[in-house]
Amino acid sequence: MMRVRTDLGDDVGIELHGPDGAPAVLFVQGAGLDRAENPVPSETARLLAARGFRAAVPDRLGRGDSPASGPVERERELVAIAAVAAALGGPVVLVGHSSGCALAMLAAGRIPELAGLVLWEAPLGQFAEGAPRWWDGVHRAIDQGDLEGAIVRYMVGMPPEWIDVLRASPQFPALVHSWIPDGTALAEVEARSPGAFLADLPAPVLAVVGTETFPGMPEAAAALAAAAGNGTAEEMPGAWHEWEPAAMADRLARLLAETAR
């Protein structure tokens, strides 16, 4: 474990794998539970370390080893991502998962040694009323203290059993406070368009979907790749919003090797 204190006073707990100074991957998880309850990024990080690369899996603010009481605003999360990237001390590939893709897109410009941006199943263009209106409804429920209602609103269109998993967590329903950065970022990216964040990014952008995924995800990945100055859309083994660790580790290792060259 490593801890990083941000300029805004937040303490971030980070699971760290691999040698100091090696090109690194920084996972930006989406809305959900803490990293201990989603082993996929950690397993991917261990596989990358075995290939000689570095990988960091932080807990998002307000979860697990990154405690933060009450609502977490987007700026605090972006500052935390940049602080962890700086602490890695070398080239960094950001890997966003789900709504974490929007946060990774907003954070990318704050990382001087950004070596790549990998976006796994970004849920852009997935809301019938558009992300800004969807987020207005979720945020209104949070402001009114209806935290469970906010979670249900946030997860519109997702399998209902996913909400049952969240209900089993001792963090439920307050964990929705840590989702505020996600919703805010998704609304901003849709309102301004992905190109506003990706078109001038010099680092390669890889938009990825699993072989089994939700309707609309391949189209979203293609749109992100087209919006980037150096973008590619790919499919890799994975199902229902999670990648297969070995496949993702192999792809990230190739990207990091290209960066090292």
Rank of each mutant, 00 (worst) to 15 (best):
Ser99Glu: 04
Ala246Glu: 15
Ala87Leu: 03
Val189Gly: 13
Glu219Ala: 08
Gly157His: 00
Thr211Gly: 06
Leu117Phe: 07
Ser66His: 04
Leu16Asp: 01
Ala108Glu: 02
Ile142Asn: 03
Ala56Ile: 04
Ala168Ser: 07
Leu198His: 13
Trp179Asp: 04
Phe27Tyr: 14
Leu88Lys: 00
Ser66Trp: 01
Leu94Asn: 07
Ala83Arg: 09
Met217Glu: 05
Ala104Gln: 06
Glu43Met: 08
Met158Glu: 14
Trp120Ile: 02
Leu206His: 10
Val79Thr: 15
Leu206Thr: 08
Met217Ser: 07
Val72Cys: 13
Glu43Ala: 03
Leu88Gln: 00
Met1Tyr: 10
Leu8Pro: 04
Ala36Glu: 09
Leu147His: 07
Ser99Cys: 05
Val152Ile: 04
Met155Trp: 15
Leu124Lys: 12
Gly125Asn: 03
Leu124Cys: 09
Thr259Ala: 15
Pro19Arg: 05
Glu121Ile: 05
Ile163Cys: 03
Arg51Asp: 11
Thr232Ala: 13
Gly13Pro: 05
Leu8Lys: 02
Glu258Thr: 11
Arg167Asp: 00
Leu106Ala: 00
Leu224Val: 05
Glu37Phe: 12
Ala24Ile: 02
Ala253Gln: 09
Trp134Pro: 01
Pro67His: 07
Val40Glu: 00
Gly210Val: 11
Leu114Arg: 06
Val92Met: 01
Met2Lys: 09
Ala257Gly: 15
Ala187Phe: 04
Ala45His: 12
Leu33Gln: 10
Val205Tyr: 07
Val118Gly: 06
Glu75Gly: 10
Ala168Thr: 12
Trp120Gly: 09
Phe53Asp: 01
Glu15Phe: 06
Met236Cys: 07
Pro112Asn: 10
Ala80Asp: 05
Cys101Val: 13
Gly116Pro: 06
Leu103Ile: 11
Asp11Trp: 09
Thr44Lys: 14
Ala36Asn: 03
Ala249Lys: 08
Gly130Ile: 13
Leu255Pro: 00
Arg60Cys: 02
Thr44Ser: 13
Ala24Tyr: 01
Ala86Gln: 09
Ala246Phe: 05
Ala207Gln: 08
Ala150Ile: 05
Arg261Gly: 15
Glu188Leu: 14
Val138Asn: 08
Gly210Arg: 04
His177Trp: 15
Thr211Glu: 13
Asp250Arg: 15
Val165Lys: 14
Asn38Met: 09
Arg63Leu: 15
Val156Met: 02
Leu198Met: 09
Ala80Ile: 12
Pro159Tyr: 00
Gly32Asn: 01
Phe197Cys: 08
Arg76Lys: 11
Glu212Val: 13
Pro218His: 01
Ala233Met: 10
Leu114Met: 12
Ser66Gly: 01
Arg251Met: 13
Pro58Asn: 04
Pro23Asn: 04
Pro58His: 10
His139Trp: 08
Gly109Lys: 09
Leu124Glu: 05
Gly195Val: 00
Leu94Ala: 09
Ala247Asn: 06
Val25Pro: 02
Ser178Tyr: 05
Ile163Asp: 04
